[in-house]
Design a protein around this nucleic acid. Structure first.
Lengths: 223, 223
DNA sequence: TTAAAAAACGAGCGAGCGCTCGATATATAA
DNA sequence: TTATATATCGAGCGCTCGCTCGTTTTTTAA
């Protein structure tokens, strides 16, 4: 059992770190040559996009809104992406990469203990989505507006998470530790509990529920 | 314990019935005088709007898309609503009315049995959202794009559902029937399970899970 | 100090949007 | 049949959108 702070020390998911990785992944399209400048402006662009898009939808956010709130001009924005859809895909891509990086690399020593493995998975998922909350809300809410390629990516990423859950349950069930009638169905019921944490974040904040507390509630609920 | 079919016999939630009620509620704005004509065209408009908006978002659906798929002209559409936002509000309003009609009127005899009351609530919620699935997906996904008035309505409707759940849990807890540490938290955790049914309907359909089966799973999970 | 490279600027483009309105077609009743 | 009420039509208006590109400003290095 660990805490959100411990998680955030292990993984650097700050806006700067995420935008640095974003820059690497999109060197081909980004026309800005100096990394320091590129990362700083990317951070402003992404920050603003997440705020505006999560408030009223990506499609309803115009690029003129974006120029106003970032202080960058139309032309400057297009040095960082070559279309509005590309901007969307850059953000979505970073969410998928983060899920890959964090969730598919459990710390060693968990293979033997199914209960601990499941607990680690639930907890880590909650801490990840807590740290990158606006990113995950964006990916979840804009999913249907993604271009084809992006929708496939989002669906694949969703399935990865659900498979990780199912595997952990399966291991516990065959070790005789869990009583689960239907592994897939149980995994399918856990997923919305994890999603609700970031989609309805305001609801839980209003009630003063900390991420550690929610993690414990979900673990209790599942066990 | 009842079935989806029994539910659908008790409540007429067919497209025609819903559009008939819609016509009553919007006599002031709808310029068509003959009910038969109005209901038939409303049905086509709403059906198409739900399909297109749920596929790519209400904002991305243009009124020209709507003319193509309904066979009605631009001018004809504006005999049924006076703005695109009004169309959105008409659909949302009908969802709210349906929730009011169905969920706040439990059959008599349940007051004494908290377990049965909770079971009825979960089951009825699932059957309602199953019957009006595209309507509920629409209300859920477009919520943030609603005009102010609409967002308030949606939030109020959400709270009603959560309060009904909390009340049922509360009654069971104080009767000593349920062991619930935190009534509000438990209600907050049940909500996403009910929502997942209609939001991710395709996932459950792919797995061949019937609404009765899901209802039973949620009831088991909760109990 | 100066010339080249890098970054930012923002008016203007064509396209598509929500919406209007005078003309037209259809149904109803005299 | 004719007159009136009802319903439908769709070109066109003003506007905002995503995006471009010639120009200007800032940074870098000789």
């Amino acid at each position: 059992m660990s805490t959100l702070l411990e998680f955030q020390e292990r993984f650097d998911l700050s806006m700067e770190a995420l935008c640095a990785r974003m820059l690497e992944r999109h060197q081909a399209t980004i026309r800005i040559r100096k990394p320091a400048v590129a990362i700083a402006n990317l951070a402003r662009i992404v920050e603003t996009t997440l705020t505006l898009a999560n408030a009223k939808g990506f499609h309803s956010m115009s690029l003129r809104d974006l120029t106003e709130h970032t202080g960058l001009s139309m032309g400057a924005l297009y040095a960082y992406f070559d279309s509005k859809d590309t901007l969307l895909m850059m953000i979505l891509g970073q969410v998928v990469v983060a899920v890959e990086d964090v969730l598919t690399r459990p710390p060693p020593g968990l293979e033997a203990d199914p209960a601990a493995r499941l607990r680690w998975l639930l907890e880590t998922h909650l801490y990840l989505t807590e740290t990158m909350q606006p990113w995950f809300v964006f990916a979840y809410m804009e999913a249907k507006a993604f271009p084809r390629e992006g929708r496939d990516l989002a669906v694949a990423s969703e399935l990865t998470t659900e498979r990780l859950l199912a595997e952990a349950l399966e291991q516990g069930a065959s070790a005789g530790l869990f009583r689960v009638a239907d592994v897939e169905m149980t995994a399918a019921l856990i997923k919305p509990l994890l999603q609700d944490w970031y989609v309805k974040r305001a609801k839980y904040r209003r009630r003063g529920i900390a991420p550690e507390r929610y993690a414990q509630s979900v673990i209790d609920f599942v066990e």
